[in-house]
Computed example of a mutant assay.
Amino acid sequence: MNAARQAQLRERLETLREELLAEGRMAIPPARSDAVSQPDEDEAPLTEMTQSIASNRNRERSERLEQIAEALALLAEDPEDFESCEGCGENIGRRRLELMPWVRLCVACQEKIERDGHVPGSRRNLTDYR
């Protein structure tokens, strides 16, 4: 990987990190406004859904920030391996890295993991809902 490509990827990762940090954490609304009141029966499902959405967004944001930090570290330590898939060793693909510079797997290896392995949050069988 040449120096210009390294600089381009580093800049993209740093921009993504700054955008995520600028967004900040999503506030999770409390179920009740005070400790004495009972939650409104009509409002409770909406509050639970809002809490779940905020919690998921915060978790995904934290995971993405961690992935970006790992990608920046790899780019600094071993730029020649940065474009190599951790699964098969082939090049990840220029366009894929431009869109998601934190990824560590090529499309084929990512598809294999999603098809063969369990990806958190995915449900493929009726028995997954038990």
Rank of each mutant, 00 (worst) to 15 (best):
L46Q: 13
R64G: 14
Q6N: 09
A54L: 03
H118S: 15
R115S: 10
L13N: 01
E60L: 08
C88G: 01
N125E: 15
A69H: 06
T15H: 04
G121V: 06
D116I: 12
S33F: 10
A31L: 15
E18V: 02
R5A: 06
R5D: 06
Q51F: 02
E19Y: 00
C106P: 04
S84N: 13
T50N: 14
R5G: 00
G121A: 03
V119H: 08
D81G: 11
R115M: 07
V107S: 06
W102K: 03
K112A: 10
A54Q: 01
I92H: 02
L72P: 02
E41R: 15
C106W: 02
E98V: 11
L21M: 01
P45T: 11
D34L: 05
E63A: 15
C109N: 04
M1P: 08
C109V: 04
L9T: 03
T50I: 13
Q38K: 10
Q6V: 14
R124Q: 07
L105S: 00
E114I: 01
E90T: 13
N2P: 05
N125G: 03
C109Y: 00
G117R: 07
R32T: 12
A76V: 09
R115G: 05
A35N: 09
D42I: 13
E111F: 06
R5P: 01
E14Q: 10
G24N: 01
L72F: 01
K112C: 07
S84P: 05
E14C: 05
N91I: 12
S55Q: 14
D34I: 09
L65C: 08
A69S: 13
L99C: 08
L13Q: 00
M26R: 08
R64L: 15
E86T: 08
I28F: 07
A22R: 04
D34P: 07
Q38G: 00
E83C: 13
G89C: 05
R12T: 09
D34R: 09
L99Q: 12
A76E: 14
E111H: 12
R94H: 09
E43V: 12
N2W: 02
L46C: 10
D34S: 13
C106N: 03
D81R: 15
D78Y: 01
R25Y: 08
L72I: 03
N91A: 15
S55W: 11
E111P: 05
A22G: 07
E86D: 15
E80I: 12
C109A: 06
D116T: 11
D40Q: 07
C88T: 04
N58D: 05
T127S: 11
C88H: 04
V103A: 06
A71E: 03
L13V: 04
T127K: 01
L105Y: 00
E43K: 09
R57F: 01
P101R: 03
E23L: 02
A71Y: 05
D128S: 07
R17W: 03
R32I: 11
P29Y: 12
Q110D: 08
L9A: 03
A7L: 09
V103F: 02
D128A: 05
R64A: 15
P101I: 05
R59A: 10
Q6D: 07
R94F: 10
E23I: 02
E18D: 15
P29M: 14
A7C: 08
A69W: 02
L74N: 11
